[in-house]
Every structure is written in structure tokens, then in C-alpha cells.
Design a protein around this nucleic acid. Sequence first.
DNA 1: AGTCAAAAAATTATCTATAATTTCACGCAA
DNA 2: TTGCGTGAAATTATAGATAATTTTTTGACT
Lengths: 248, 248
Amino acid sequence: MHPPDRALVNPTLGRLDKGRSGKLSINMASTEDTIAVRISKELADRIISGAIEPGSRLRQDHVAEEFNTSHVPVREAFRRLEAQGLAISEPRRGVRVASFDLGEVREVAEMRAALEVLALRHAAPHLTASILDLAEEATKAGDKSRDVRSWEEANRTFHRLILAPCNMPRLLSTIDDLHAASARFLFAAWRSEWETRTDQDHRAILSALRQGNPEAAAATLGRHVQWIGQKPVKTASGKTRDAFAIVG
Amino acid sequence: MHPPDRALVNPTLGRLDKGRSGKLSINMASTEDTIAVRISKELADRIISGAIEPGSRLRQDHVAEEFNTSHVPVREAFRRLEAQGLAISEPRRGVRVASFDLGEVREVAEMRAALEVLALRHAAPHLTASILDLAEEATKAGDKSRDVRSWEEANRTFHRLILAPCNMPRLLSTIDDLHAASARFLFAAWRSEWETRTDQDHRAILSALRQGNPEAAAATLGRHVQWIGQKPVKTASGKTRDAFAIVG
DNA sequence: AGTCAAAAAATTATCTATAATTTCACGCAA
DNA sequence: TTGCGTGAAATTATAGATAATTTTTTGACT
């Protein structure tokens, strides 16, 4: 086998499966990390889930107090969030949660299409039957999901499974950051309601891969991740506007 | 607790000139930035130019002493370098300059191809005659360059000019990081000698864009940035091995 | 009321000090 | 010689204190 340990783990996001706590989470805070890493993972979780509003300020002393630390590791955590595109920092004026609009949703979708297609082309020769079986399980789990969070996790698992064997760490880590952004868009639109839907694209991709046709799989994947869902949501002022998210 | 008096930089290779006078520098350090940003730009410059060897450790107290600061902003600078892929940090074990191999050169080349093609497709409708003229000037400047550094700068200017109008900030910033990596590969291979060469691809891209054929331009660009040059270089042990770099 | 400016408060950025951890050199035994 | 503890030195990580800057409040004046 190829060296999967390195490929399956993302240094910035941590392991993407369930940790000891069992809590569903995108970023796992493990005790072996430095405080700065723990804080950045927890804050990333909150930003992605929408627990912290886009545009709201992140005050270092407040965060430091909450995590019972000094502000030095908090500042380092901010730099990490900045790099992931989850926060924006203005010198001497503090850090705020990054906002996003339809333009950024489109941008992330197109970047994902370009990069995931590239990753799949390289991963295809290394894909084994057992990996594809796991990916199929992830698809089924997604189809059964009754809420967005578990659907998102299953979806992310699917993509990761079929892309990780490309063995291109820089590419995978960039894709992970884009997935974090995608998840954020998704949760912003589908925070509460989520109707079960079967993912036909995932099945088509798996089928093409099983039949030894990676180009067809890549083409479907490229279209798949550019599908942008639309949904009316209530704004703070009571009005309804359309929210957009990548659903794939 | 007392940092040794040995200089941070490899003594055999001089420090690069920084600041406003020398347009040598890849990242300009401006006085309005925070200290952390200034330090990260300067260190990025040194890493890209090869002034600091891949794999060598970056010790926070040494860097702090050199820049006459405490180590707090230095640590933040390290986080930035980490995000750019120029340094690697292991908790409690410090930060070292990222190493790279042929695999990463290929990876960066393919990511650039995928993303620059995407950017060009979106930029094409917004390209004006004057932008294309500036890009042509940059190409000429590259053709006249007698050293790698000025060639690299001209090349980067060309790519930036034709891609920037895509108006996709996240995409552009990812491409910038990839260009930094490319420059590093280039300087590692062509540190001293550099023979003048005319860039036919750049001209073909400009011509296709002027004729209103963005798809042809994108196709050429995609091939262009994946061209990997090869060159024998002397290693520290006196032997010669082949170095690889993206030349486009 | 409205607006501008100065004072006060809050916040960011940096510095100094301390704790925790790792690295390295040295001595000793197998 | 080689391998392995062991302790000193170096280094990383965090805490606490201070300086610099921004934001908010307050109050005089129109």
C-alpha cells in the first residue's frame, strides 16, 4: 500500500473522523496539540457551523479568557484561521469572522471542481476495491442523513476517500480548506431543515471508477461539485432572501 | 536562555537586499505592517531565494534578536510561513524551512495549471488592450533578463497581469502561494547561471487573447506552467544531481 | 436635537519573565 | 566502540505586564 497515514491526515484540520469524545466535529481538538492549535480548531468549528456570525469580531482577550489562557496562543490561532480564509485580520483593528457572498460560493465551487478533478485523476490508479466500498458506505450514510451536519460529514468522507490516494499533500490540504468553506456555506443555508436526498452523482462516480473509466468519473465529479443549491432563508430583519450553497 | 551569537543565515550565502531600493525582493516589507508581517515577508524572501537552506531550523529567539523584537511576533510570522507552505512546524520541536522534492515540483506545476487556467477563463472577458500591452512588456523584460531573479519577477508579473482581472481573491491568493513555491524551486536550480531565453508561450497566449480566443490561450497556459526544466547542480558533497523547476 | 472633539475605555500589539520541553554533551557500563 | 542514562543548556510555549492604537463615551457648543 501507499503511505496512507500522511495522506489521510490533514495537518491544518486534523483527523476528520470521530474522536474519542464522539462529538461530530470537523476539527478535532486533541490534547497533544498546542493551545493555539486547539483554539483554532474550536473556533473553526464554530465559524463553520455558523455559531459565530460572519462579520463578528473575535476579541483576543475574550477568547483567551474563555479558554483560560493568555492571549499569545489566541493570536496564533487567529493567524491559522486567517490562512484558512475563515477570519480576516486588519492590523491594529482586530480580527473578524470572514463574510461571504454568492460570488465566493461560486469561486469555491469552481476551485473545488478544478482541484478535485486533478486529485481524482492522480488518485484513480491507486484506488482499491475496499476504498470504493468505503466510499459507497459513505454515500449510503449521506442518503440516510436526517440533518445537514451528518450529511456534510458523509459527503466530506466520500470526497476524501476517493481523493486521498493521489498522494499530493499540498493539493489535499488546499481541498480541505475549500471543503471547510463549502461546509460553512451549507450550514448557513440549511441550518435547521434538511430533506433526505439520494446522491446520484456519487453513485455515478463510483460506478465509473469501478469500470475503470476515471475520465468519466472526473467529468462527473467536476460537474457535481459545481452544483449550487438555492434556498430561501429568513434574515435577521425578518425578510427572506435566497441563500446559496455547494451541495456536493 | 542566551541566544548564541552565530548568525541566523547560512554564512556562505549573503543576506538578500530588502526594501524599496532593491526590486529583487519577492515580498515587499512595508513599514505600516505589523512586526509579525514584516518578519514573515523577510523570512519568506530568504526561504524563496534559497538564502536559508531547506530543512534548517528557524529559532524564534535568534530571529527575534536579529529583528530586535521579542519572540511573540516571530511566532506569528512562523504561523504565516507555515500557511504558505514555506515552513513546517512541529509542536514543541520548533519550525524548520520546508524541504521539497521532484514530487512537490510536479504537484505545484499541476495545481498551477488547473488554477491558472480557471483564472484565465474568468479573466479573459475583462482583459483590456492596455493590460495585454503591459503583459507583453513583461514578456520582453523576461526575455532580456540576464539573471534568474529578474526573469522570475517578469514572469510573475506576466501571469499576474493576465489573471488578476478574474476577480476571484481566494483563487488569486492560492495562485500567489504556488508562485512563491515555483520561485523557490527555480532559484534552487538556477541560483547563479541563467541563459537568456525568449518565451514563445507567453507570446502565443497573448496572441490568442488578442484574437479573442481565450480557450486556446488557456490551453497554452495550462501546458506552459507544467513545463518542468531540468538542470544538473552540485550538491554540498561535491556530487552532481539533477534539479527540477517550473520554468513558466 | 445635532455635531465635533477631547477624555475614557477597550482592544491590539509588543515586551519581559517564567514554566515546560527538547536537545545535546558527557560519562559510564556492556 | 557502541549504546544508554543523566543533567545542563538551549529552545519552545505560555503567562503576566506594558505600550500603542482604536473605539466609545461624554460634554461643550451650534
